[in-house]
Design a protein around this nucleic acid. Sequence first.
DNA 1: ACCTGAACACCGTTCAAGT
DNA 2: ACCTGAACACCGTTCAAGT
Lengths: 212, 212
Amino acid sequence: LPVIHAQPRARLTRERIVRAALELVDEHGLEGLSMRKLGAELGVEAMSLYNHVPSKAALLDGITDALLSQVEIHPVGEREWADEIRSAARSLRRVALSHPYLVTLVATRPPRTATAMRLVESALAILRHAGFDPEDAVRAYLLLMGYVLGAISQELTGPLRPRQQAADYADLRREHFPNLLDRVEQGIDDPERAFDFGLDVILSGLAAMLGG
Amino acid sequence: LPVIHAQPRARLTRERIVRAALELVDEHGLEGLSMRKLGAELGVEAMSLYNHVPSKAALLDGITDALLSQVEIHPVGEREWADEIRSAARSLRRVALSHPYLVTLVATRPPRTATAMRLVESALAILRHAGFDPEDAVRAYLLLMGYVLGAISQELTGPLRPRQQAADYADLRREHFPNLLDRVEQGIDDPERAFDFGLDVILSGLAAMLGG
DNA sequence: ACCTGAACACCGTTCAAGT
DNA sequence: ACCTGAACACCGTTCAAGT
C-alpha cells in the first residue's frame, strides 16, 4: 500500500539532521533524543542517519557547536575590556538558558571544535589586550568561564532559585536551616541580578589586579 | 546444578547497594552503571534491587548524597570567614576530582536532601556572620558555588587543561588562534593554582564589599 | 550513493509467580 | 518479605541486502 507522507521528503543532509535534533532536544530534553525518534521525525529509518552522521555522539557535538556559535563576542579593542567580557558572558547565559541542556552538553562532551575554541581565543585576546600577561590571562579566562558555566547551572537546577517548589524545602527543620529557610520565605533575588552581581565582583577583582 | 558463589551472599540492603553502585561508577563512570550490572556485582538479579531502592534515579541521588557528605565545612565562627570558605571550596574540589562524575550528577539531578542543603546553610551562616546582609549572602553564595562547580567542570573537561592531547588543537590554524596556541605550547598552569587564583579574586572582591 | 530490515547486545521497570 | 523469570518498551549500532 502506498504511504502518503505529510510532508514531501527532502533529501537527508547532515545539516537537516542536526537541525531536527536540536528541535527534538529543545522540546523533549536530552533524554528525549534517540536515533530512532529522530529518524521518525525526518520520515526515515534510524539507520539512514548513519549515512550522514557517524554516531549519536557526533550529533551531540553538532548541536553544541551550533549553539556555541550563537554566542556573541566582539573582536578585541572595540570596547573597554570589562564591558566586552560582561556582554559576552551575558550572551552565553542567554543562549544557555534558552537551551537548558547546553551546560550539561558542554560539561559532558567538551567541544573541541573551532567554534568552541573561538570563544577561548577571543577571550584570551581581550584579556591580553587589557594588560594581563599570558599566564594571568589564562587564569582570568578560567575564572570567568568557570563562574559563568557554574552560575548558569545553578540558575537552572541549584538551590535558592526563585519560584522553586516549596516541597524541596519541606523536610528541613527550621532550627537546623534558619538562614536558608529565611531566604526562601522572604523570596529570592532575580537571577539575572545575581548573575551580574557575581560577574561584577569578578571583573572588579580582576581590574584591581591591573591597577596594582 | 548447584551454583557456588565466590562470596557468601550477604543480605541485600539499601546501604550495600549504594556502596556497590559508588564503586561501579568510580570504576566505569556514570554510563557504566546499570541495574543489571549492579545486580550482578551483588550476586543478585537486577529486579531484586527494586525491593530496596525505588528507581535508578533514587540510587543516583544516594550516590550524590554520600559524596556531598564528605565535603568538610566547619561551624560558623571557628575561623576567619574567608579562610573557612576557601577550605570548604577546596574540600569540595578534592571530593569532586576524586569522583569526576559528581559535578555532572549535581548539575543533572540537583540533590534536595538535608546533606546537600547543609552545605548551603553552613555557607550562608558563615557569610551572614562575616557581615553580609541576607540578600548579599545569597548572592555571595551563588557566586562562590557557581565558580567552584564551574571551575571543577572545566578542570575535568574544559580547554586549557595541562596534559591535554595535542590532537585537540591540531586543526587550529596559528593565525586564527595565536593566544590559545601560544599557551598550549608554553604549557598550562597547575590547575590547583588556577583554582586558588580564581577563589582569591572572588574572596578579595567580596572582602572589599564588606570594607566599604 | 543512499536507504532499509533484521539482528545484536544492551537498557529501566512491571508484574505475576515462587520461596 | 524478599528474590526471580519473563516480558514490555525501549536503546545505539552493524551489516548484508536492496534500489
